[in-house]
Design a protein around this nucleic acid. Structure first.
Lengths: 389, 389
DNA sequence: TGCGATTTGTTTATTGGTTGAATTATTTGG
DNA sequence: CCAAATAATTCAACCAATAAACAAATCGCA
């Protein structure tokens, strides 16, 4: 998690941006530490003066982003340090997800703790977008109340589809949606700023928080197949927010026809439906070691596609998430074999292939994370009072 | 070209970094303008005060990065503006390239003008790395002298192979090189800092300077096939500098065997050798409209691979360079057809497919550009006197 | 020819923010 | 109970940007 506030663009830098950057730096130093930090250790870690850190921390405490812990952990001689930690009663993030057969919402505090979580199973293909989003908003409000009415810094929604940067769902095939302004609809009902993003992108973000290396690709195996791309610690969304659409990479150009019109797409071999059919079961949870050999074709199709991803992006880690996560034991060898065969640099450096840390909640958690991440990356805006609820 | 100086990392920001950023901002504003700018127009373009801009410009002129033009372009009433332009006698970049059958070097000034250019045709597969680099260094020194002994900000070398960030050529199959510390060898002989990069990466950089949109992928068709990835105006090199290795993407998993050991790699269909064979000629320049139909297989293989790239990265532009550039008229339709078929978002937004602006010099020019780009992005370091020659 | 309008560029006092050194606060060890 | 050690705060100095006033150079029009 790097501070990028001054980075962005061709904007001039004034002194206030310096403060904004350093506030973010101090805050993130605390956020990235497992245990409470003292002002002195923040100073040591960042290179800022103790005087500066004190001033920054004062602002952060006054703004409700940090709290001073009463029982400071003490060692050796000298005045004991005051422990600093992210304020659990500070601004929280509301994460939501809508998918084919459920709605979900959760409230996550600054420290990353899930304060409340609600899931409602219901087939969303039947309801129209405003109704579905109305249900979701109600669920979210309930979650918020049950979490103790924390102030919200914002909300984010994970959607299985293509989303424009302005929060409009351009197309979500499995929901039957097209050009739905989900951000505006939810904003109206929740009264906080709402961002909308593809589920794979947000799931990748959650992975970044929990165990992420700087660069990896998260493969989300749901009904479709998507990928969230994290490069140098930053989620890459693409020019229009449509990156990571790997479900229709061509695996066998002369293979069976796909619903997208092309032939031999990855989804035909490694989509949820294809995997269930190959294993001869109707539920993913029914798959066990005896069904594993049947997954060989899915694994090598995935491996072929992922080899292409690694060749193109030079990432050293692939994370299998969504419905792939529990199947990793049966998929790993088949994927790894294709990676060895097709990745040019496989001999120069190993590729890590692992299951996602979070399960089905990944996208929703990533949505909440995206909100608190925005606060951690730009505390100055929060402190100035803009966007408080 | 965006200023990223304060961006980078978890570094504290002091006042001097503010100055560094704003120096870069002012300088780049001039660099990105087609005609000379006044201090006032820099102020208007950046949002910085006229007073601040004056101070910045004074520093930049004193440091030899900008010059004041004597005949200022005048319009309307008011005190005439003093024209500011990049100093053509300021620090220059030395760009070098080594490839299978030639060595090349050029000197490019701050404004992007090629001041001198030398190419020496010779088969490099016969000579060992130190000898080849010695030849190259001599060529570079001659180019430097013939360009009028400009001060150099640095040098960069384009290599057809995998290069580590520290400038070591890990493997360059067509040169027969392995683990060659090209940066150190050249540094010793040239007396300036040397960076080394993959030829496709640097060619992409040259394209960014000349006509680049913010995000595109440059496909370099040489003996092998590589890609340079530019995302949001920044060259993405990958975790270890090995991004863009698309030559061995799998097109037909059951296709003919490739020298890499796998089957049906892109290179087998669209590599230089495959294209010559398909067209039934021995020189690329012999290809004309009559040979065009024979390129259908190459085009669709390329299209298939590039469709995957677009699906993954969501870029809106593909630039065909190297030996592909002159073939674009015969390749375009075949590639576009596959893109239409396989790119999910093709209906939502068009994909631009075009030939590279620069020809065979692209990589060498990109190398020189990389050097002057480093000055434009961080003028403060140059002004402070570090790295002057 | 001369004078006001206009635009460019510089000067000066002010402000915001970091720094470094000195100072205060609070503990451990002898 | 005092010295050593470490944490945190205070305060003068400094750096860089800002705003506003000022100087410079030209045009337009009488």
């Amino acid at each position: 998690m790097t501070a990028r506030i001054l980075a962005s663009s061709a904007a001039p830098v004034r002194q206030s941006s310096v403060r904004a950057h350093n506030l973010a730096l101090a805050l993130q130093t605390v956020a990235n530490s497992a245990n409470p930090l003292s002002r002195a250790s923040i100073s040591a870690a960042t290179g800022l003066t103790r005087a500066t850190v004190s001033a920054l921390v004062d602002d952060l405490i006054a703004g409700g982003l940090l709290t001073e812990l009463d029982p400071p952990p003490r060692t050796g001689a000298g005045r004991p340090a005051a422990g600093l930690a992210l304020a659990s009663e500070g601004p929280a993030g509301l994460g939501m997800e809508i998918n084919v057969d459920y709605l979900a919402a959760c409230v996550v505090d600054l420290g990353g703790t899930v304060r409340h979580r609600l899931v409602e199973h219901a087939d969303q293909r039947l309801s129209d977008p405003p109704t579905a989003l109305g249900h979701l908003a109600r669920l979210a409000r309930r979650a918020r109340t049950l979490a103790g009415d924390l102030r919200l810094a914002g909300a984010a929604l994970a959607v299985p589809g293509l989303v424009s940067p302005d929060g409009v769902v351009r197309v979500a095939p499995n929901l039957g949606w097209q050009d739905v302004d989900a951000a505006a609809l939810l904003r109206e009902q929740l009264g906080v700023p709402v961002t909308v993003d593809n589920e794979a992108n947000l799931a990748a973000l959650s992975e970044l928080r929990t165990t992420g290396g700087p660069s990896f690709v998260y493969i989300s195996g749901e009904i479709g197949i998507g990928a969230g791309i994290v490069l140098d610690g930053v989620l890459y969304r693409g020019m229009r927010g449509w990156s990571g659409e790997i479900g229709h990479l061509s695996v066998h150009p002369d293979g069976p026809e796909c619903r997208c019109g092309a032939r031999g797409c990855l989804e035909r071999y490694a989509g949820q439906e294809a995997i269930l059919r190959a294993a001869g079961v109707t539920e993913l949870t029914d798959i066990d070691a005896t069904a594993a050999p049947a997954l060989g074709e899915a694994a090598s199709a995935l491996g072929l596609a992922l080899a292409g991803v690694v060749n193109l992006l030079d990432v050293d880690t692939l994370v299998l998430g969504g419905s792939y996560a529990p199947l990793v034991p049966w998929l790993r060898d088949g994927i790894a074999a294709e990676l060895r065969r097709h990745v040019l640099t496989a001999e120069l450096a190993p590729i890590t292939l692992r299951a996602a840390a979070l399960g089905a909640d990944a996208a929703m958690r990533g949505a909440a994370d995206a909100v608190i991440r925005s606060v951690l990356e730009d505390p100055a805006t929060w402190l100035s009072g803009a966007g408080r609820t």
